[in-house]
Amino acid sequence: MSSMVLAPALVIRRSCSGDVEQMLPLMRQLKYPTTPSVLYERLCILEKHAYLCSLVAELDGKLVGTTFLKQHQTHDMIRPVTQITAMVVDEKHRGTGVGRELVEAAEAWAREQGSNQLVLSAGGERNMLAKSFYEHMGFICQGYRLSKLINS
C-alpha cells in the first residue's frame, strides 16, 4: 500500500477581524506601521464596506499573503476602477504562486463589482521586484503618481 502525500491547500478568502494576529507580521513585512487594535478596527470596517475588500491567502490555516482593494468611480468613468492599495506575500512564500492567486482573486472581486480595470502604485524605485511582478501579471506602467499633504 502506498502512502499519499497531499500538497498544502491554498485558499483565497475575504479577511475577517479574527485574522489580526496572523496579519500583523505581513503588515510589518510591508513596512506598514499598525497595532493590533488599529488593524482590528480596519478589518471590521472592511467586513461591512461594499467598496472596500481585503483578501487573504491561507496555506493550511496560516496566512501567507494579503491584498487590500478599493473601488472608486468618478464623474468621467463609465465603469468603476478597482485599486490594489496594498499587497504582500510572506517573504518565505514569494515566488510560489501566492501573489498570482491573490491578483487573480482581486480581478474576480473587481469584476463582481462591475469594474474592468485594476490599478496600483508599486512603491517607486525601492520596490523594483514588485513592479516586475505586476508587469509579469499584465499590468502596464503609465504616467506618474503625484500627491500632496494637506495641512489641517
Rank of each mutant, 00 (worst) to 15 (best):
M1Q: 13
S2W: 12
S2A: 15
S3V: 07
S3K: 10
M4T: 10
V5I: 04
L6C: 00
P8Q: 06
P8K: 04
P8N: 04
A9L: 13
L10M: 05
I12P: 06
S15V: 02
S15R: 01
S17T: 02
D19W: 13
D19C: 08
E21G: 07
E21A: 15
E21V: 10
L24E: 00
L24N: 00
L24T: 01
L26T: 01
M27A: 13
Q29K: 01
Q29Y: 08
Q29W: 10
Y32G: 01
P33I: 11
T34G: 03
T34V: 05
T34C: 09
T35P: 02
T35E: 12
T35H: 09
T35A: 07
P36C: 09
S37G: 02
S37N: 05
Y40C: 06
E41G: 14
E41D: 15
R42Q: 14
L43N: 04
L43P: 02
C44H: 08
I45C: 11
I45L: 15
K48M: 05
K48G: 13
A50L: 00
Y51G: 15
C53Q: 07
C53P: 05
C53L: 00
S54G: 15
L55K: 03
V56E: 08
A57K: 05
A57C: 07
L59T: 01
G61T: 02
V64S: 07
G65V: 06
G65Q: 12
T66Q: 13
T66N: 07
T66W: 13
F68W: 08
L69M: 13
L69S: 09
I78E: 14
I78G: 12
I78Q: 13
V81M: 05
V81Q: 03
T82D: 04
Q83I: 00
Q83L: 07
Q83G: 07
I84F: 13
I84H: 12
T85D: 15
A86M: 14
M87V: 09
V88D: 03
V89A: 05
D90Y: 12
K92P: 00
K92H: 13
K92W: 10
H93G: 00
H93P: 00
H93K: 05
R94Y: 12
T96A: 02
G97W: 12
V98F: 14
G99T: 03
G99A: 07
E101K: 01
E104F: 09
A105Q: 09
A106L: 00
W109D: 13
A110I: 04
A110C: 01
A110D: 03
A110H: 02
R111Q: 14
E112V: 03
E112D: 15
G114A: 00
S115M: 05
S115G: 08
N116D: 14
L118R: 07
G124F: 04
G124Q: 11
E125Q: 12
R126V: 02
R126L: 10
N127C: 11
M128R: 09
A130I: 02
K131H: 13
K131R: 15
E135N: 06
E135L: 03
Q142T: 03
G143V: 06
R145N: 14
S147W: 11
S147Y: 14
L149V: 06
I150V: 15
I150D: 12
N151W: 09
S152K: 09
S152I: 06
